[in-house]
Amino acid sequence: MFAPPKKVELESLHIPATSETPEVNLVADGGLSRIEGKSLPENAFEFYEPVVLWMRQFALRADTPLMLELKFDYFNSSSGRYLFEILNILEQSRHKQSYRIIWRCDKDDELMIDKGEELKSLIDVPFEVRVV
């Protein structure tokens, strides 16, 4: 007999915005999660490490859908690398069909539209680029 999947305990993660980093609001119970703002930390690894760890834990949970909204004024290339890693974790999950990524960007922000399209093309998770 197989043991039932272990319940992965996880708390919501909130990191307030600074002038260099975005606001992170990751909801453990399946509500709307968001990362929003500017992201240009010098050490992107240090900033995104807790986000990456949280996402790894979340991706193990069988019973929780995820709606992740991403909206950036802009981000530096190192932040881009970690955003890709976060999305990559979701892609590797067995539960990825219950995840949904919404990339919100301004219609004038050609750069962020391109970034969203690029990430969408690299990741096999339901991903919508929403231009407003």
Partner: peptide, 22 residues
Amino acid sequence: RSTLRASVRFENKTNSGLGLIE
């Protein structure tokens, strides 16, 4: 695209030259 993929695959903690490409 390939640099981005490689940086995650090989767990490169820096941005491995993405900056200059951008």
